[in-house]
């Protein structure tokens, strides 16, 4: 069977004058839908990698394929409906919460699954919100969850999560973790989750991708990554994840 997602020799250059690589030789494969934590100190290009995977940014080199179909050959819209990026900074569209949640059905002229939206509102701890409330008036944490929910309505095969619990309190964070794990089990969605929260990575992921030294340095099961990291960089990172290189 063809792997769900294949990343081959991907390179991205910095935007500055000398065009030095931000990362290169990034290789990875998602064979089966799984939960992956994408770790690494800031500035390694974790978000950029996710954006490349979602076809929002162009890679300077390399090949990305989904079930054997190359990203270059697929209509970018079709690709993005299968591989969906959820940004760290949630963007609310003008109008109500409900309007935001309906975005996918409006864009693709598909029926709006109100039941699903309501269920997810509850699971993400947003049941207190009036659907008619102006989305711009929400708190940062509420926006982050509405933004996540809006993308879930697309039912992508691969979900790219960019620090989506960064501005949440502990309780809400745990709700989001549970809801996403539940979603993964039921829907069989693969997730690549950028986080700086190592407890979260241990809790939710089965695999860790660790970025460092300008590439994808380690790719192992979550257990072996945290117990026996292969590189010194990863060992140091596990001790103090927030430290810059």
């Amino acid at each position: 069977m063809l792997p769900l997602l294949q990343i081959k020799q991907v390179r991205k250059n910095r935007d500055d004058a000398d065009k030095s690589p931000l990362f290169s030789n990034v290789n990875a494969e998602i064979a089966e839908p799984e939960m992956i934590a994408l770790l690494g100190v800031s500035g390694q290009g974790k978000s950029t990698l996710l954006r490349i995977l979602a076809s929002l940014t162009r890679a300077d080199e390399g090949e990305i394929a989904m079930q054997g179909a190359s990203q270059h050959q697929m209509d970018p819209r079709e690709w993005r409906m299968k591989v969906c990026y959820v940004a760290q900074q949630p963007v609310m569209l003008g109008g109500s919460i409900e309007h935001n949640l309906k975005t996918v059905s409006l864009l693709h002229r598909t029926p709006y699954d109100k039941k699903l939206a309501e269920r997810l509102m509850g699971e993400l701890g947003l049941e207190h919100l009036e659907p008619g409330k102006h989305a711009q008036d929400l708190s940062g944490g509420e926006k982050q969850r509405v933004s996540l929910l809006r993308s879930l309505m697309l039912r992508p095969q691969v979900l790219l999560l960019d620090e989506v619990t960064a501005s949440l309190d502990r309780g809400s964070k745990e709700k989001v973790e549970r809801a996403l794990q539940e979603w993964h089990r039921k829907e069989g969605t693969a997730m690549i989750w950028v986080t700086h929260d190592l407890e979260q990575a241990k809790e939710v992921s089965g695999t860790v991708w660790f970025m460092g030294e300008g590439t994808l340095l380690e790719n192992s099961t979550t257990n072996s990554f945290f117990e026996r990291p292969a590189t010194e960089l990863a060992q140091g990172y596990i001790k103090s994840p927030e430290q810059k290189e």
């Binding site: 929002l56 409906m81 940004a87 900074q89 569209l93 864009l107 809006r150 697309l154």
Partner: peptide, 20 residues
């Protein structure tokens, strides 16, 4: 930019993404 890219990430066409 944020709004346009959000719409693109949800599978919007160029037209849909820049409509507003």
């Amino acid at each position: 930019r944020g709004e346009i890219e959000l719409l693109l990430s949800l599978g919007a066409t160029a037209r849909q993404a820049v409509q507003d």
